[in-house]
Simulated assay, not measured.
Amino acid sequence: MHWGYTSIGASTYKGFDVSYTDLIGTFGINFNLFNNDVVRYYSGFRLGLIWRETTPFPAVGGALGFDIKLSKFYSKIQFYLGMRLWTDYREDQKNHFYGDSSGYKRGLITNNALLQENGAIVLSMSW
Rank of each mutant, 00 (worst) to 15 (best):
W86C: 06
R40H: 04
D88K: 01
P58H: 12
F79C: 10
Q116K: 11
L49Y: 11
G99A: 07
R46M: 00
S19Q: 09
I50P: 06
N95S: 15
V18C: 07
N30H: 01
R46I: 07
Q78P: 00
N118F: 05
Y20P: 04
R46C: 02
K105P: 02
Y89A: 10
G4H: 04
M125S: 15
E117F: 05
K69F: 02
S71E: 11
K105L: 11
M1H: 12
R90Y: 06
R52N: 11
N112I: 06
R52G: 06
Y98L: 00
V60A: 04
F34S: 13
F27Q: 03
P58Q: 13
S11D: 15
G82D: 08
R52K: 15
M1R: 11
G103N: 12
Q116P: 01
D22W: 02
G48K: 05
Q116D: 04
W86E: 04
R106H: 14
Q116L: 08
D88T: 01
G103Y: 07
I121T: 09
G61L: 01
Y104S: 13
L64K: 05
K76G: 15
G82T: 08
A120Y: 04
A120Q: 05
T87L: 02
H96N: 14
L64G: 05
F97Q: 04
L23G: 02
G107P: 00
A59S: 12
T12E: 11
V60N: 07
F16P: 03
L64E: 04
F57T: 04
F57V: 07
G48L: 04
D22E: 03
D22V: 00
A10N: 08
L108G: 10
G82A: 09
R46S: 01
D22C: 02
H2D: 11
M125E: 05
V18H: 12
N95H: 13
S102K: 04
M83H: 15
F66K: 02
N112W: 05
P56Q: 14
Y89K: 09
T54K: 15
L81K: 11
Y74W: 14
R84W: 05
K72Y: 10
F66Y: 12
A63T: 09
M83K: 13
N111Y: 10
V122C: 08
G9F: 01
L70P: 03
L70H: 01
G28L: 03
Q78V: 07
D17G: 13
D37M: 08
G62P: 01
I109K: 07
I8K: 00
L23I: 09
N30D: 02
G61E: 00
